[in-house]
Nucleic acid binder design. Structure first.
Lengths: 249, 249
DNA sequence: TGTTTGCATTGATCCAGGTCAAGAACTCTG
DNA sequence: CAGAGTTCTTGACCTGGATCAATGCAAACA
């Protein structure tokens, strides 16, 4: 019970408090990170009506599969997800990790079918935004559309940064960048920037960064030897965030 | 004059015919590829008013620089562009190439400043869409907003595919994927799928694919030896598109 | 309680593709 | 059209990180 790997997933409490009680957008703790930002409160009430608060998913359960017809965009409410695209002969690329307040499935708007598979990394829940209804309401609420574009744009720009990472960074820089990015995202969500749990496996991390699992393992070892981080299974303590940031390249 | 490298850039004719005569959206040859798709003709007339048809750019001239305040989204009208992001110590990643009908600058909506630098690869011209005015009009034209989202989504999904390329593909697969993608894009624009000019340098290609220039050069050589393509400076002839597609992985 | 199954670490070896170096070919400029 | 950059190609060599292999370790099961 006191072992590192038994620590409760970070975002589970949120799930209990907010998901299970069907909290309205107005009083959701994710408000600040989510779509409603910039909407008037009467618009908000409207938006609230079209959001489906779906039941929670358990570890490894998929939210949607690649090629399935596009119906909804999802906002992570609690837990964490990964998305993957598969190339031929079974090779897969983990294209992203998603935390509360982040949007999944936006790359399906154009093609009208999901381009990737989204899987829960731990017990998680989402808000579902049926896209058709979003469009209907959007006609009367241009601010909502602009918000949506803004979210799309945000993901676009983080994807471009990932291209730099995959195309130009060394293994060490990749690892540092990954840890710093996690740290910032946890902080944005009101959690510690220096102590958190990894919800994904070493394999997922390696895959996402374009490395082999062994390399990730060795690199974690080295960062630990250098006293930049401390690792115990899935729990991470960043001991020198500044040094880590310098390593990002 | 008869040498391969002196062949006129592919999209220059379009520039002459359409840009310099200030063609309206309704009668633009790019109509099918561009924003207006799905708009009513009176909406189209409105849209037409807010589009600024800017003068053309010459080779190496930048359309915008990284960090500059976001004002407009641009649609390539003729020519070709590349976008780059720079990491530390001068390393740069070419994040994309853009051809007529494609949008540049969408990753700046969220941050309100351009995240990359856009440079013309040859004499080129663009349509400028001032984003503020686009928003104003969007309020009355929800279809326009949806179109914009769709374009954003399209770029998102092609970026995800680029992640697979950078993270999981071999050098040969990368080259094949690149050529096939160019081929398809030229075809979509009504040009030959098997004969075209590269508007970018070997260096740009290498950088974009996460390879060294030398590797690109050798790979071009090998593809040529294997009779899949023929190369003469910047002019490409695809001799076996199907085989090339099989190589994409 | 031992067994299975999946994840993580560690060491030894290997190779795809990077780096370095030297020419060749092209492209600009005056 | 000569000369000076560039950009491209080709060869020789090297290395970062992949792959292979063995072991450790913890949760899940029967």
């Amino acid at each position: 019970m006191t072992q590192a790997n038994n620590v409760a997933p970070l975002f589970r409490d949120l799930a209990k408090v907010e998901h299970e009680h069907h909290v309205a957008c107005q009083s959701c703790a994710l408000y600040r990170l989510c779509l409603p930002l910039g909407l008037h409160s009467d618009d908000l009430a409207q938006l609230d009506k079209i959001i489906k608060r779906s039941q929670s998913l358990s570890r490894n359960q998929s939210l949607f599969d690649s090629q399935a017809p596009f119906k909804s965009i999802y906002v992570v409410r609690s837990g964490a997800f990964k998305t993957t695209i598969s190339a031929s002969n079974g090779r897969e690329q983990v294209t992203g990790f998603y935390f509360p307040g982040e949007f999944i499935g936006m790359d399906a708007i154009y093609s009208q079918s999901y381009q990737s598979t989204a899987k829960a990394l731990e017990t998680s829940s989402v808000c579902e935004l049926p896209f058709e209804r979003l469009q209907e309401f959007g006609a009367a609420m241009p601010q909502l559309q602009v918000q949506m574009m803004s979210r799309l744009s945000k993901e676009l720009s983080s994807d471009k940064n990932l291209m730099v990472l995959l195309g130009k960074k060394t293994a060490e820089e990749k690892m540092a960048t990954f840890l710093v990015s996690l740290s910032r995202r946890f902080q944005d969500r009101g959690f510690s920037a220096t102590e958190f749990q990894l919800s994904m496996s070493r394999g997922d991390i390696a895959n996402h960064l374009g490395l082999a699992v062994e390399t990730v393992s060795r690199l974690f070892g080295r960062l630990q030897d250098d006293r930049l981080v401390r690792l115990e299974g899935k729990s991470v303590t960043i001991e020198d965030l500044e040094a880590l940031q310098k390593l990002c390249g």
